[in-house]
Computed example of a mutant assay.
Amino acid sequence: MRVLGIETSCDETGLAVYDHERGLLAHRLFTQIDLHQAYGGVVPEIASREHVVKIVPLVRETLAAAGLRVGDLDGVAYTAGPGLAGALLVGAALARALAWALEIPSIGVHHMEGHLLAPLLEANAPKPPFVALLVSGGHTQLIDVQAIGAYELLGDTLDDAAGEAFDKTAKMLGLPYPGGPHLARLAASGRAGRFRFARPMCDRPGLDFSFSGLKTQVLLAWQKSDQSEQTKADLALGFEEAVTETIAIKCERALQQTGARTLIVAGGVGANQALRALLADLGRRHRFQVAFPRHEFCTDNGAMIAFAGALRLAAGHTDHGTLNVVPRWPLADLERV
């Protein structure tokens, strides 16, 4: 089964083709970062209009890269939510139009399930059960995965997600949008030990996260400092260490609580080198497997949607010919494959 995946949940237009027998055949991505930079964040109307402009040319480019014609497709998968309603509708409308014209099934995919399954695109991918860490600009969650579609939320963020905290802290330090990657690069030149911030909610049981107080600690430290470039780098490192070590502590607890021997990491913050190194070291010391997607599949992309959609279409799931997007959609509501 050859499935076209369409991702338009926010500010990136992602397309991919996944084949059950041959794996990922091709993927393409257009990012709108430059368009939104002047506003310091995503403008939903601009995002939706840009998807309209880019999506059809990207479909053609992706199919050509896969060596396929549109009539060779056996199914279409698209992000149905969560995300920006207008952006979601662009991808959903094209997917349903293709499915209707080609008389093939289509399926609306949960955006976070796509992220959760992205590490399974890699060679020697683990199989459930495992614990999944979803860590991005909008989510910081630990999930017990017993099977595809069988998800139990173990811990969630009570305020800012990790990626959101990275972006807001970067903005406080005067770094350009999007701030998270800039802050991580700045932290590489920071001096260890100059600033040590709290590891939020690690002094109590449970697996929930909270990063808003940490952001305030950084702001107060910055206001009291000499505000030099070196101090900025030292603060960035102190902040990054606090976030990544907090996440690692909670991951270790989740594995102990569930008895799982595998941790998969997904979402945009999963590309952070400090976090990857910390979790990989944790896995080596405690002898559990840690699986990451390649960097290009940490952020939003069409490959994860094509893969997740192919799994569900193969199991007989479809959207039954309806065009429906769900801007707010709990992961626990999904049907087991």
Score class of each variant (00 low, 15 high):
residue 1 M to N: 06
residue 3 V to A: 15
residue 6 I to H: 13
residue 8 T to G: 10
residue 9 S to Y: 06
residue 14 G to E: 06
residue 19 D to K: 03
residue 22 R to S: 09
residue 22 R to C: 12
residue 23 G to I: 13
residue 25 L to I: 02
residue 26 A to Y: 03
residue 29 L to G: 00
residue 32 Q to H: 11
residue 34 D to W: 07
residue 38 A to C: 10
residue 38 A to T: 09
residue 39 Y to Q: 08
residue 43 V to I: 13
residue 53 V to W: 03
residue 62 T to L: 13
residue 64 A to G: 07
residue 68 L to K: 07
residue 72 D to K: 09
residue 74 D to M: 08
residue 76 V to T: 01
residue 80 A to C: 07
residue 82 P to S: 06
residue 86 G to K: 05
residue 87 A to H: 05
residue 88 L to M: 07
residue 89 L to H: 08
residue 90 V to C: 07
residue 91 G to L: 03
residue 91 G to R: 03
residue 93 A to T: 14
residue 95 A to E: 04
residue 103 E to K: 15
residue 105 P to M: 04
residue 109 V to C: 08
residue 119 P to H: 02
residue 123 A to R: 14
residue 123 A to I: 00
residue 123 A to V: 06
residue 129 P to W: 12
residue 131 V to L: 10
residue 134 L to T: 07
residue 143 I to G: 04
residue 148 I to A: 13
residue 149 G to D: 12
residue 153 L to F: 05
residue 158 L to K: 15
residue 170 A to Q: 08
residue 179 G to H: 09
residue 182 H to P: 00
residue 186 L to R: 09
residue 190 G to V: 02
residue 192 A to M: 11
residue 192 A to F: 12
residue 194 R to A: 12
residue 197 F to D: 02
residue 198 A to I: 10
residue 200 P to L: 11
residue 202 C to S: 12
residue 205 P to Y: 11
residue 209 F to Q: 01
residue 210 S to H: 10
residue 213 G to Q: 06
residue 226 D to F: 03
residue 227 Q to M: 14
residue 227 Q to F: 04
residue 228 S to Q: 12
residue 231 T to M: 13
residue 236 A to K: 02
residue 237 L to M: 08
residue 240 E to A: 13
residue 244 T to F: 09
residue 245 E to C: 00
residue 247 I to N: 10
residue 251 C to E: 08
residue 252 E to W: 06
residue 258 T to H: 10
residue 263 L to K: 04
residue 266 A to R: 04
residue 266 A to W: 11
residue 270 G to E: 06
residue 273 Q to P: 06
residue 274 A to E: 12
residue 282 L to K: 15
residue 283 G to D: 02
residue 283 G to A: 12
residue 284 R to H: 15
residue 288 F to C: 07
residue 295 H to V: 14
residue 295 H to E: 14
residue 299 T to P: 00
residue 302 G to M: 07
residue 308 A to S: 12
residue 311 L to D: 03
residue 312 R to Y: 02
residue 315 A to R: 09
residue 320 H to F: 10
residue 321 G to K: 05
residue 322 T to Q: 14
residue 323 L to N: 03
residue 326 V to S: 12
residue 328 R to M: 09
residue 330 P to T: 01
residue 335 E to Q: 15
